[in-house]
Design a protein around this nucleic acid. Structure first.
Lengths: 331, 331
DNA sequence: CTGAAAGCGCTAACAG
DNA sequence: CTGTTAGCGCTTTCAG
């Protein structure tokens, strides 16, 4: 019981009594075929359930009309938005999206880039862990757009962390806090570095103290160690690398009888699903992740059409979502 | 500034001083090549950065070594596990996974199946909204595996809702509840139907009353209407279509001053990220979503190798995760 | 406007 | 064990 064989261009040609090249033209250059023959060909094709074979097209043209999106962890809710946006952008452009999970592992990322390379027209790399040098080498073979990572010479879509971190610091300052503690994530994280740099600069500007602790695992499980460190340091305001860590911190604080926001204010990054229903609901910096995914796809698609040596960097606005986890400084 | 041209098998052959077919064999049938020449070929290939062109392979073999996974909504945390599992399963089998979002829309799903059909070896359809008839027609052209949907003649991976719902009912019964209210989701949902059928049967068996309300939007936003209906009915235990709805219900109950689990016990389905840190943490039926994704990929892959007219249905165990949202009947 | 023929990169016969 | 040859399905010259 073999799968029914698909009709090929030759089958259609035979059934329509024309040459294969005419069938091909009827589909790809409708203008260059007699209206009458074209309609006949299309009718026969429809009847045979003919659909062009993308592999054959790709072989000839070198274009697969496919893009790959690589993310460090598919289950991380932060990337869900990027994936959705990329999916939407690809669909809008008639492109197919291939999804890869790099397991936060640079080697795996490199391998995927290599393996998928010949099968796709370009890559969207979200939160890439690859060194700049390697990214540029890969970009030499395939157009690449980066999400939340900036590498000179490559197309990038990044969140406006400068503005975002300033919003956070202003918010805490207006609540009377005199200092903040940043609970850091993975040291290789480009976003993490930008977040800390922004916080520190904005804090200095505002006359607030800023200290970095960590690195911590950017997940619920990392919260206990991070919270304990913050308590020991007598922090009144903590800003966590991301929402999962922030929520983990709040869980631990509750366990240790520390009130949020009464004793300590907690702020996160990402505004993931759940930041709205954790307890208390989390104040966090929202990024436009869907837009980032869509823009990155656009950028790659543009590069596929015409290579430029200086592709654009796009900065997307961020906004602080104030919820109940942040409040006035105690005392 | 055109992209650097990729090395082909011919380039490698020339550089290594062998025939193209030898290079091909060195990769695909390592045993049929002299160890010495093979190592030389592989070294040259490595140096040239050669990677086989999947399109060319596909053209020749008719196999694309690619599977498509279609889900109703990529951002729904429930599907994150399925996606991850499918990704992992595909990677383990050396297959590439294409991801499609059907936007909960049968027409869009059908279109994706048609467009992607010639480009992939098979489909994993998660929570498909397509009618049985159309699924069977599609399965005629491409192997298909279904996740949480059963259609005779197709490979299926489903959660054991019979056992799961019995666990829920037993749990509530042991807490002294005499009846439960089911807050239903979309009427077309196969899982939803199975969940209600299971609850009702188990409740009857146990001598509990069971009523269904709804349908509600299976999201946080659906919670208000669902909660209000449950309160009006004087329910002591509610079981929601999924965790998002359950959490939405708890949010609304808190707003109305109804204590969970003091006044009402709440149970969900899915055990999504967030069920552990909402307030109170949610009692819910966990499915093995990652395993489901991986198994479905396996099933498709098996069908690609050898078609059978009666593919297997796999039932995966479910387990009740008891947290603090469920408690003794009041009074 | 249409047909014939060449080849995209690769693999599977078939010789040697 | 390895080279030669013939396509896979499609697009694209190039003639007609």
């Amino acid at each position: 019981m073999p799968p029914r064989k698909r009709a090929t261009i030759t089958d259609v040609a035979a059934a329509a009594g024309v040459a294969a090249s005419t069938v091909s033209r009827a589909f790809t250059h409708p203008g260059r075929v007699n209206v009458h023959t074209r309609e006949h060909v299309l009718a026969v094709a429809e009847e045979l359930g003919y659909a062009p074979n993308p592999a054959a097209r790709a072989l000839e043209s070198g274009r697969t009309r496919t893009l790959a999106l690589l993310v460090p962890d598919i289950t991380n809710p932060y990337f869900a938005g990027v994936i959705k946006g990329a999916e939407r952008g690809a669909a809008a452009a008639g492109l197919t999206l291939v999804l890869g999970d790099t397991a936060e592992n640079p080697a795996q990322e490199a391998q995927l880039v290599r393996r998928l390379g010949p099968a796709v027209d370009g890559f969207v790399l979200s939160a890439s862990r690859l060194p700049d040098e390697e990214l540029r080498r890969a970009a030499d073979l395939n157009p690449i757009a980066l999400v939340n990572r900036a590498t000179p010479g490559l197309a990038c879509v990044v969140a406006d962390f400068d503005s975002g971190t300033r919003q956070i610091v202003d918010h805490l300052a207006s609540l009377g806090h005199h200092s903040l503690v940043f609970l850091g994530g993975p040291p290789e994280s480009w976003s993490g570095a930008r977040r800390w740099a922004g916080l520190r600069a904005a804090a200095e500007e505002r006359g607030l103290g800023a200290t970095r602790f960590g690195p911590y695992v950017p997940a619920l499980a990392g919260g206990a160690a991070a919270a304990d460190a913050a308590i020991a340091a007598g922090a009144t305001a903590v800003v966590a690398h991301n929402d999962m860590l922030a929520i983990g911190v709040m869980l631990r604080l509750a366990e240790r009888g520390v009130d949020v926001p009464g004793d300590v204010s907690v702020v996160g990054f990402d505004n993931i699903v759940g930041a709205d229903f954790c307890n208390p609901p989390l104040t966090t910096l929202a990024e436009r992740t869907e837009e980032a995914g869509a823009r990155a796809v656009e950028a790659v698609a543009a590069q596929v059409l015409s290579r430029t040596d200086d592709p654009p960097t796009r900065v997307l606005p961020t906004q602080l979502v104030v919820r109940r986890s942040s409040g006035p400084v105690p005392g």
